[in-house]
Amino acid sequence: MSKTVNFKVKGSRPQDRLNNPRRSFLKFGGATLATAGLVMSGCKEIYDFLPKQLQPDKVKLGSGDTGILNYAYALEQLEAAFYTLVIATDCGFTDHEYRVMEDLQQHEVAHRDFFKAALGNKAIEDLTFDFSDVNFLDKESVLATAKTFENLGVGAYNGAGKLLESADLLVVAGKIVSVEARHAAVILELMDPDSTFVEFISDGLDWALSPAEVLEAAQPFIINKIDASDLPTA
């Protein structure tokens, strides 16, 4: 199995091979997922009654610029894991669409690896994901998810710019967010070649979202509970 994946996951790293996307998919697709889903469903009462050791550890993003970088790192992990699954699965894409997905996978893996290295020993752990709401055999479902992630990424970076202290990091975030915006535009174009930016047609401004808004949307896809409580808010 790993052979198949290695064939398709261009430039995959050792930890990717260990974390074989297909295997994770199967794991999350079965009973594990049901339990995790219950825990993560926001049903506070049940969560509170679970024995401590069954509650997933919270992942603390940290404070200051480190916290913001970990926030970005979490989102890049999510995107990289998603596209790694996409290109390892037959989603029904045309050759052209598949090549686009390969590019997105490569870009997001590069972003992820960059943040991990930049954070060093301050980096959060490798997150585990729940993509059970995505039908990987249906390209419309995959594209709709990609659209969500890319737009969320754009809104996240745009909203986080003002939270960064370091001007250098602001530039790096700027270098990445425009690539996420390019991704979003291409995904929307693949979904509807005649689309004309209807999300913000009337004001010409893109989304800018707070970490709280972004994490509320992203958390259902992440098994670990993300703790953003120490992030700067202004």
Partner: peptide, 9 residues
């Protein structure tokens, strides 16, 4: 930044 990413789109 909100203009910047629209230009990228």
């Amino acid at each position: 930044l909100q203009i910047h990413s629209v230009e990228a789109r």
